[in-house]
Design a protein around this nucleic acid. Sequence first.
DNA 1: TAATTGACCGATC
DNA 2: AGATCGGCCAATT
Length: 126
Amino acid sequence: MNTQQTDPNISNTDFNSWKKSVWQVVQGIPRGHVLTYGEVARLAGKSRWARRVSQAMRRKPKGVSLPWHRVVNAQGKISLPQDSHGYQEQKDRLEAEGVVFLDGKIDLDKFGYQGALDQLLWGEPL
DNA sequence: TAATTGACCGATC
DNA sequence: AGATCGGCCAATT
């Protein structure tokens, strides 16, 4: 909805073109839902740029606040090692939004993109 | 400065 | 079935 590149710390070469689409997609994820890297990349226009999406997250520009925790891998799992700090934080944030982890995995049928659409269209929160 | 490295995914072998 | 490989490119080493 709005360009977040008001921060002078952002690298000029990076985070200028396709990344904006990524930010928008990620920020457009409804609360309590998640998207996979591939889906974000696809929605951003490039289906093979899942990797770039993850990089854009990990190396997110300073100054841009992004709900990075709503992006998981295609298996519905958090990619970071379970003993890492980031894993705990991401899981914690998601659970705080109502996302349920089943054996460390998110049910993408419910919380994934399709589930988000269903909720938006049907107005039925699970 | 050049080479390596990734929060990945999908197709292919 | 499981493993490998290609795509894409900035930050890190």
